[in-house]
Design a protein around this nucleic acid. Structure first.
Lengths: 211, 211, 211, 211
DNA sequence: GATGAATGAGGTTTCATTCAT
DNA sequence: CATGAATGAAACCTCATTCAT
């Protein structure tokens, strides 16, 4: 039954996906405002009018592209992480996967790092637009699990999320602009090392000792 | 009265500064593309044509505003930090000052966090536009100094910069959107704690030991 | 049941008529330019492409709808009036019938009063589009008959047509917009009275006499 | 004083008027929807953007043009008619002047006859748009005055207005399309004759008597 | 015949920039 | 120096029309 209904829908889906993918690329490359609908249309090999058969307007397309990207990535992430038992490893894996996922191409990285900010104007226009919320919530839960399992110190998960997402975000952004002369892999390894040390249990560092 | 206080050069400086300040505010509030030149002109109480006597175009004004903001903040920072002897305290102070400085009003915070990304399009048009470079370099130096003084571990300063700037940036961004229910002060304290622990000298954490 | 009643030709006729009727209504309601082909298609419960099987284009549909409406109404009119002997009564009946016919619903009234003008652009594109010509000619003939029968004064029938059609048209237009607080019936009665007095035989009015 | 303030304004007014006049002509020629802003701009010898310095949008321009035309004509009318004592002559003069005024060129005639209808869509969007209301009210008053002076029968002025405006409107419309082979002057004379006879005091015509 | 997904030309409107005053 | 009226390029979106199924 599913196969039947999808026969006709296949092409439609195909076209919708082509538009979404084109949108992510072009938005990521040029930014929301410099992206013209016709750029996306050409990239998706459809007429510009066609885009309006699938999306109400440019804003709608942007939001859909963003949400579907995040949604898809989050599903990926969850599936892989669910297979890991250790709560701490899960957290580390999150770091690695995040970077892996968003570096398929620099446009995607730019899309999630740059446009995430750009799109703050959407927060006003579309108050329900919280594309990262679910993502962040998931990360919070991973942190809380690690804390509950006594694998890391009991710290404010909101702060931890800011450190982790902020670091990942900026690292990807710099990478997408070609600004860094370290490999992302290197950067990740070291960042994980530093942050993990900052989280592990044990006595707080004492300045007096050092002096 | 007005005529008296406004000496010729003062008047000119005054006008340029008024435009820059207006630009920072309006760009921060509305974002680059939604900001109209006439908005800035009105906010600075000049005619729109006048802006073109001081800046070549909208891009130029944006860049000038950004650079002058960063430049001014960096001078501030350096002056205050120069008065501190301890290399580690300097690093901590940097964190605090950064947040203090860019939270004078949310528009300024948005300007530096959101528009920094937005402006990646300027990297293409104006390859020399690296507004944060000096700022980042200074932070790198502070890190290196702390390492050289054996106050923190010998880590890659580039990575450290990414963690610190990324964290600060994201914390400010979330704050400017009113998304966080923690105070910035709280977040800063805890972030510093975590990152500092991650940096302090001593043996690496061992998972097996902890369990 | 539906399949049975819809014989092949009947079905076709049915569809064409359904489109024409839908067109009259939607054109009347929204005006030519605000009417979208898909509006008519939906109203006629056909696909939009289907309309192009029966009409060359939107203009063609508009003209066809208009002409068929007028044609149908004129046939009605002629049939009823043919049954009347008195040439004067025929003229009066024309007045009444015209109003009756075009007030079946306000959309139809708007269609014939408003779009008649709107469509003056068709006069350029389709010089043969003279939808009211036959109608007007018939009225002229009725007038001429009344004159020949010495029932009214011998006046220029063209002028009379302008008075009658102009009056009817404007009365219907105002009614269709809901602008008048008199009933159409009232207006008609009084208008007929005035115009008929203006037509009847006898000495011209003399101002001096009346005073 | 007035002269001074008008010095600068002169050019502005000139441009505004040029746009209004161009608008009346082009709207009259092509109709509202087929008229493109750039058509009006070219006709007024300004850039298309300039039009938006004087009018909010196309609708606004249309309404302004219509209202200013009617307003101007009505002032004319009132001034001339005020100089006439006889209440009946006033009514007759109204008829003549109306035709004279709106036949300066066919575009103007089309503008007032065709677009008056077209613009019924404006009644919905702009409920206060009643361009002819004042005009009609003035005609009603003229009628009432003639009735009060016992110069014509006591008839419903609303009906009379419908006859008069409807007739004038249709006559002008047909003339503007070049459809009539009578001169407007001829038509007017005869129409006035018929309508006046219909209005004069005296016994109603009796059909039976005539036969 | 019937469908409706796809097309793409076209128009209103905005706004950065210029330049006469 | 300062002004702000004028310019005109550019882009989102609509919708009549086509054509593969």
């Amino acid at each position: 039954m599913k196969r039947k209904t999808n026969k006709l829908t296949a092409k439609k889906m195909d076209k919708r996906l082509r538009i979404i993918n084109a949108a992510m690329n072009v938005f990521g490359e040029k930014g929301f405002h410099k992206t013209k609908i016709i750029d996306i249309a050409r990239s998706a090999r459809v007429a510009d009018g066609t885009i309006y058969l699938y999306f109400h307007n440019k804003d709608d397309l942007f939001i859909a592209a963003f949400e579907e990207l995040i949604e898809e990535k989050l599903q990926n992430l969850k599936k892989i992480i669910a297979a890991i038992d250790d709560k701490l490893e899960r957290l580390l894996k999150f770091f690695s996967l995040h970077i892996e996922m968003f570096t398929q191409n620099p446009n995607i990285a730019r899309f999630v790092t740059k446009e995430l900010r750009q799109s703050s104007e959407f927060y006003l226009k579309y108050p329900t637009f919280r594309p990262l919320q679910e993502y962040i919530n998931y990360l919070k839960k991973l942190c809380q699990d690690a804390i509950d399992a006594s694998l890391i110190r009991s710290i404010d998960t909101e702060v931890l999320v800011i450190i982790m997402i902020g670091t990942l975000n900026f690292a990807l952004f710099e990478w997408s602009l070609g600004n860094s002369n370290r490999s992302l892999e290197d950067i990740k390894e070291q960042a994980v090392n530093i942050i993990y040390r900052g989280l592990k249990k044990g006595p707080a560092p004492e300045n007096t000792e050092d002096e």
